[in-house]
Design a protein around this nucleic acid. Structure first.
Lengths: 108, 108
DNA sequence: ATACTTTATTGCAATATTGCAATATTAATA
DNA sequence: TATTAATATTGCAATATTGCAATAAAGTAT
């Protein structure tokens, strides 16, 4: 089907999975890392960072924007994208909550 | 194409994205959480936890096993699945490294 | 006004993902 | 041996994802 069922899960589980899924592509990881590193706003500079065409980069940016990892403002004829700081902390909490759980003793 | 390009990224970026992608489904989040919570091994009990059929659960387990988040041993005619503790700490480091980066001041 | 720059959108084509029913497999049990 | 139990695999069908070329849209500059 290609369609993920959503009934039967908690809202938190769906939210976690949605964010993880968006981070589940090397281009989007690279974009997020780049934004965090330079700590600034960018537009088309990403063409120099990623091995992808402009339309494809635009789509990855849209994915990141959809879950609010990044935000953008129009600046004349170009865009300013940056990490949504508040959301980033929220995601750190969410994913950190999962990652922080202790695996305990191996049993198999 | 549906095919993710891999040239042009670091190995770390690909590894991170691969793990995040596997976690990018509510069923797999639920499985991992369940395993971490009960801190034990399971087999088909997951049928009571997830709103999915047995074959579909089996496939999600296979996805998790592919990136070593879980491991399984054959126990008679059933399976014992549990979190791969060592790998879990590794993933915590990896994802934690990304999440730990500070977003800094908002600029757009 | 025309050309240029920058980003977004559309329209494919190829591949991947998700789900279930049906079936296979393997071990335990009667 | 025949039957049951527990998982895995196969074979679809439907939808999603990824990528690029072509085009659109909107501001800037000449």
């Amino acid at each position: 089907m290609g369609l993920t069922k959503t009934e039967g899960y908690t809202q938190a589980q769906i939210e976690l999975a949605t964010v993880a899924k968006v981070l589940g592509h090397p281009a989007r990881i690279a974009i997020v890392q780049h934004l965090l590193e330079i700590n600034a706003c960018i537009g088309n500079d990403l063409m120099d960072v990623l091995p992808l065409s402009q339309p494809t980069i635009s789509r990855h940016l849209a994915e990141l924007k959809k879950v609010d990892i990044i935000q953008g403002t129009i600046e004349g004829s170009s865009m300013h994208y940056c990490i949504n700081a508040h959301r980033w902390l929220e995601i750190r909490q969410m994913l950190g909550g999962l990652l922080g759980m202790e695996p305990g003793e191996q049993c198999c």
